[in-house]
């Protein structure tokens, strides 16, 4: 199957059901509650709308993402959080029926403009996916893939350095340094995911997007990846989509709650999880639906 986060018929049905529910509750979700601005933003999204064909998937979302912060995006399935994440490095371009409107500024340049070159953009805004997806190559070549295509290393020594450094930062070097030439697919699921993170940081991005990076991993592997995310925020801006609310609470500084394509509430993670202002956020966090 294709990306599971796309709007499928099932999801749309769910959205419609939720609409009915919302009408009954008479809750307004078109205005975002909380503080969308931060002091030192790296990414500023303004009035972003996303359509799949005729269907609207993201409705007028505006949010700042600060430097060296981890922003968690939570919300029920089909709420558009993954879709919004994929706007941030234009991965939605690969889906034919998808249209994105609005403005997203990365260091004061609107990346949604037609003339934006997506290749350097995606090098600056890297992405880690839900399912570990190592290439059918050796562990070394998996990490060296990005630096090679972007010409980041002048010679073999520099390339080695980048690869070892990335594996080290992904906390994987100790486990794989004796078998860098064995295929990346021979690793365990958690190791594969950390390999994919190493692959992403090897091109030294400024922002890393993570789309439910732990949903295919067991609890131990999840703990390792979470630890890694916590360490990576020293050097990178991280946006993570997650279904696990504890995970959001553990790794993020700010949390954004999405519902039916709307950004309902955003704020400091502690605040969202202890004193949510919006009724829907509260319902979701207390597990009344999701």
């Amino acid at each position: 199957m294709y990306n599971e986060n796309l709007i499928t018929e099932e999801n749309i049905e769910m959205i419609n059901e939720n609409f009915i529910e919302d009408e009954q509750l008479k809750i307004d979700i078109s205005e975002t509650v909380g503080d969308i601005h931060v002091e030192d933003p790296r990414i500023i999204a303004k009035n972003v709308n996303v359509f799949y064909g005729e269907k609207i998937a993201i409705n007028n979302v505006s949010i700042d993402i600060g430097k060296n912060e981890v922003l968690a995006m939570i919300g029920p399935s089909g709420c558009g959080k993954s879709t919004f994440l994929r706007c941030l490095n234009r991965m939605n371009d690969t889906i034919e029926s998808c249209k994105v409107q609005g403005e997203i500024y990365l260091d004061n340049k609107n990346i949604l403009e037609k003339k934006t070159d997506v290749v350097p953009l995606r090098a600056r805004v890297g992405m880690v996916f839900q399912k570990p997806n190592p290439f059918p190559k050796s562990i070394y070549d998996n990490v060296a893939y990005g630096p090679k295509i972007h010409g980041l290393a002048k010679n073999k020594t520099e390339l080695d350095e980048i690869v070892f450094n990335s594996l080290e930062r992904a906390g994987l070097l100790a486990e794989v340094k004796d078998r860098l030439n064995s295929p990346g697919t021979s690793l365990s699921g958690g190791q594969q995911q950390r390999l994919c993170i190493a692959r992403t940081i090897a091109v030294s991005p400024e922002v890393i997007l993570m789309d439910e990076p732990c949903s295919a991993l067991d609890p131990i592997a999840t703990a390792k990846v979470e630890q890694l995310i916590y360490e990576l925020k020293e050097n990178f801006t991280i946006v993570i989509v997650t279904h696990a609310m504890q995970q959001a609470a553990r790794v993020s500084q700010r949390t954004a709650y999405f519902h039916l394509g709307n950004l309902v509430e955003v704020g400091a993670t502690e605040k969202i999880f202890t004193t949510p202002q919006h009724k829907l956020t509260e319902s979701y966090i207390t597990g009344r639906f999701g």
Binding site: M91, V118, V119, M127, V128, F129, Y145, H150, V203
Partner: peptide
């Protein structure tokens, strides 16, 4: 699998690089 392709595109490979190398 589509996620292999996405993985390559996601770190800034072009379409042809993705096809040839992945």
């Amino acid at each position: 699998p589509r996620n292999l392709k996405d993985g390559s595109l996601g770190i800034g490979a072009t379409k042809s690089e993705t096809i040839i190398k992945v």
